[in-house]
């Protein structure tokens, strides 16, 4: 097992090197660079900027160097923990990212827990009581949750909040606490706000997870080993928990790897609609303005999280299922 993990970790090094080149190439792929974008955005505001300014800007940021040189300067910095400087925000990239990541992590974990708390019991109930009244009710609600886009649900909830409760549900903090230092009051304020995005982000996930859980469990419920266990005299509940549910979990674990990258890139639209200070909107903005070091750092983080997530789910799967462990 430890050899397996070590081998996978070693394998990540060349893989991440390839990924970083690809990321950087992708960012540089659209025509123009940050300077042209900058000029364009100024021109849109009616201002002009001289060619000389742009040239000096390019020189200052190194945008006039060849691709490989730029890449090397960037990746060399990354290797030493320096992710570069955001042109747009005039701040170090690492400050920007870590500032956002904490809240993103919190929100995503909350949404994930919400998803699981809803989806597991309902999925199991629906499978065990297949075609019962409640199965149909949950199926209907699940389909509804899948079909309604998250941002629409967000808008509706915000409208209800304003119209009926007179409260702005957008954002993660109220105005008073937005830029305040952490305090008990700020935490309470966060808790008051976080449930809205949590529910919205969790709903579609829960809806699909209910379907997956139901289908997985239905496959297992009538397997001969369940009958064997029943013939042993186990109670239905113990039996269910110990055998079919345990085996139906495998597909879950193998998709766990996708949860981590979702922390960063998922729910961009919802975050914009709800005005959340999470990583998604920042990434989108960086890509749009060709803020190359910020965008590059995000993409690199995404890939790293994907690789780590896959590794974690592989390890979990091996722990759960001896058939995989023994291979």
């Amino acid at each position: 097992m430890s050899r397996f993990i070590l081998r996978r970790l070693l394998g990540m090094v060349p893989f991440m090197a390839l990924v970083s080149i690809t990321c950087f190439g992708l960012i540089k792929l659209p025509p123009g660079d940050f300077a042209t974008n900058y000029a364009a955005s100024l021109a849109a505001g009616g201002e002009t900027v001289s060619q000389a300014t742009l040239l000096s800007m390019r020189e200052q940021y190194g945008l006039d160097r060849p691709f490989l040189v730029q890449y090397w300067r960037w990746i060399d910095g990354v290797a030493h923990g320096n992710f570069g400087y955001s042109f747009q925000w005039q701040q170090p990239v690492s400050t920007l990212i870590w500032g956002r990541m904490g809240l993103t992590l919190l929100l995503s974990l909350a949404a994930l827990l919400f998803t699981w708390a809803i989806a597991f019991p309902i999925g199991v109930y629906s499978a065990v009581h297949k075609y019962s009244v409640f199965d149909y009710v949950f199926t209907f609600l699940g389909m509804l949750g899948l079909a309604v886009p998250g941002f629409l649900l967000g808008l509706v909830l915000m409208y209800i909040g304003i119209a009926y409760f007179g409260e702005d549900l957008g954002g993660l903090f109220s105005h008073h606490y937005l830029n305040a230092p952490w305090s008990l009051g700020r935490v309470a304020d966060l808790l008051r706000h976080i449930w809205v995005p949590m529910v919205i982000l969790g709903t579609s996930g829960a809806a699909s997870l209910i379907r997956v859980m139901r289908a997985n469990l239905l496959d297992q419920l009538h397997q001969p080993y369940v009958e064997t266990a029943r013939a042993k005299g186990l109670s239905e509940f113990t039996l269910l928990l110990r055998y079919p549910i345990r085996i139906a979990l495998n597909p879950f674990v193998s998709t766990l790897g996708w949860v981590l990258p979702n922390l960063v890139s998922g729910s961009v639209i919802i975050s914009i609609v709800l005005n959340l200070q999470t990583a998604g909107p920042l990434l989108l903005q960086a890509l749009l303005s060709q803020d190359q070091y910020l965008a590059g750092a995000f993409l690199l983080l995404l890939c790293l999280l994907t690789v780590i997530g896959t590794l974690v789910s592989d390890i979990l799967l091996a722990l759960l299922d001896p058939r995989i462990r023994m291979q």
């Binding site: 397997q223 001969p224 080993y225 009958e227 064997t228 266990a229 029943r230 013939a231 042993k232 005299g233 186990l234 109670s235 055998y243 345990r246 085996i247 759960l320 299922d321 001896p322 058939r323």
Partner: peptide
């Protein structure tokens, strides 16, 4: 009936490949 199943009356099934839990 659960107290009788497996303790007093036990059963062996047909498919040895699938009648045991794989994990």
């Amino acid at each position: 009936i659960r107290a009788i199943r497996g303790r007093d009356i036990a059963m062996v099934f047909q498919e040895p490949m699938t009648s045991l839990s794989p994990i």
